[in-house]
Amino acid sequence: MTSDGLLLLEIAASVVLVTAWIALVHRRLDAQVRLYAIQSLALAVISGLVAYLYSAPLLYLTGALFAALNGALLPWILLTVRRELRIPPEANMLVSVRGSALAGLGCLLLAVAVVGPLTPLAAVPAAGLLPISVTVVLVGLFVTVSRRKAFSQVLGILVMENGVFLAGLALTYGLGILLELGIAANLLVLAIVSRLFLHRMKDSFDSLDADVLRSLEG
């Protein structure tokens, strides 16, 4: 049973990796947000699995929170923000699609080279988790620097955060501190998102008065 659980863990981790990679090369913001949502849901599943495997009931809560916040609420906010602020749907990439795909590979190789040797030392539930999580962090970082739009940068930070979350799960089995960290990170991201929101509002309307949003209608 445990080995099957580990296996599911690995599969979920692969989903996290593949979604990050595809989001990296995708040229549509909405699709990127949806990929992020899938990734977050996969992380929530991982959280639940770790909770089950290592009898850490607190992690069920983390997982549920994660699914609700990162898997549903944040994507919804992002999609709404994009639509309401009329941000054009294309991700303006500073690096070509091909370059980004290869950059993803570079992130993976770097992660594997740096973290790979550590894997046997750390008591990690599944061997691939640590390099994958570091890869996801690096990919998120790459997204933040290689996109022109503030929206993409937020997305990149969110992906990074998912990577950190995965690393935390992999290393500590998510006990105690992780929960707090996870929530803190989420709050941070929410703050950034709202900041972006307000910033854009200010840019567009020279005002933070929510009433001006009505002018968006019609």
């Binding site: 690995e10 290869l102 590979l105 993976l108 061997a127």
Partner: peptide, 26 residues
Amino acid sequence: FRVADLSTLAVALALGSIALTYLVGV
């Protein structure tokens, strides 16, 4: 010409898979 993007992604994924297999033993 965007097919080349797709192929690059596929090559990168395959290489990533090899990296995971051999370097980490996953």
